[in-house]
């Protein structure tokens, strides 16, 4: 039941994208997210789609696999689309009884749902192409240059890496508990809402118990190996930028410039929506 969730999953192919420095990938993704909110025109979106397509192609991760991560989002995307389309006031293009589509609505609905899709795809391609270890290393490195957060960079990164590490474990555990209760005749699919919620108790109680047990065991294991936080800790693999990273930053700068400039182009009909 959890097989469809691709966000936070690693898909190793050993491609150029996979071999990039994690800092590059995190910064790129972060900048990409911001740029998606800067863009307000078709050319900008085309650039955003293009750069994402390029990254997906370079990563050698099958497109279907990336797209699968969007599955749980279909409902939200459709809802965004429909709400924006019918609820935005403006120059009416089409009307039937109380329903109307305005020019502005059409634009907003397309752009908003596109933005959502790109946001999720963009972030999931980063997690698909970066191992959880690399990801937290990159975050730690990124955070330790920000004044204020600097002091907690290691602890935050450690918490994050533990959390990431336990996602698959707890999912497996959940799956096992569900199966064990199903083997005792549990039925999660029929009955009304209250009955179904009640049916979850035999899953949630053992899951919490096991999560606490695991946390306790992990804490003991860390203490047994003299873990005492980040002070004075050295790394086995020190992050260093390569040529590919320089290229990635150049591409990012060019993309950012193009996306920002696309705001100032004057567009022919039907584009100047507002």
């Amino acid at each position: 039941m959890f097989k469809d969730i691709t966000l936070g999953q690693y898909y190793p192919t050993g491609s150029v994208i996979h071999r990039l420095d994690p800092r590059t990938k995190i910064n790129f993704t972060f900048a990409y997210i911001i740029l998606l909110f800067v863009v307000n025109n078709p050319v900008g979106y085309l650039i955003a789609i293009g750069i994402l397509a390029l990254v997906i192609a370079l990563s050698k991760i099958p497109f279907v696999y990336v797209a699968r991560g969007l599955k749980p989002l279909i409902f939200i995307v459709v809802l965004t689309f429909v709400l924006n389309m019918f609820m935005t006031p403006g120059q009416v293009l089409w009307q039937w009884k109380f329903l109307h589509i305005s020019r502005q609505g059409l634009k907003l609905s397309i752009f908003m749902s596109l933005r959502l899709v790109l946001l999720v795809t963009g972030t999931s391609i980063m997690t698909l192409a970066t191992s959880p270890m690399d990801l937290t290393d990159g975050m730690e490195a990124d955070m330790s240059v920000i004044p204020g957060i600097k002091r907690f960079a290691h602890d935050l990164a450690m918490m994050m890496s533990i959390a990431l590490r336990f996602i698959p474990t707890l999912m497996e555990e959940t799956d096992k508990i569900i199966k064990a209760q199903k083997a005792r005749g549990a039925d999660f699919e029929t009955g009304n809402l209250i009955e179904r919620a009640k049916a979850l108790i035999p899953i949630l109680v053992p899951l919490f118990v096991s999560a606490f047990r695991r946390a306790d065991e992990l804490a003991t294991a860390m203490e047994a190996r003299c873990y005492r936080g980040g002070a004075g800790r050295t790394r086995m693999y020190v992050l260093s930028y390569q040529k590919a990273d320089t290229i990635a930053y150049v591409v990012l700068a060019a993309t950012a410039a193009a996306m920002i400039l696309s705001r100032f182009i004057s567009y022919p009909w039907p584009f100047p929506f507002n």
């Binding site: 555990e173 096992k176 508990i177 199966k179 064990a180 209760q181 199903k182 083997a183 005792r184 005749g185 549990a186 108790i201 035999p202 109680v205 053992p206 118990v209 096991s210």
Partner: peptide, 28 residues
């Protein structure tokens, strides 16, 4: 079928959830 074919998983104690032993055994 699942009542006819009873399956005890590895470490089955990890699936206990009720307040009392009797209630847990009565779940099936």
């Amino acid at each position: 079928t699942r009542f006819s074919v009873g399956l005890v998983f590895q470490y089955p104690e990890h699936q206990l959830f009720e307040e009392t032993v009797a209630k847990d055994v009565a779940y099936g």
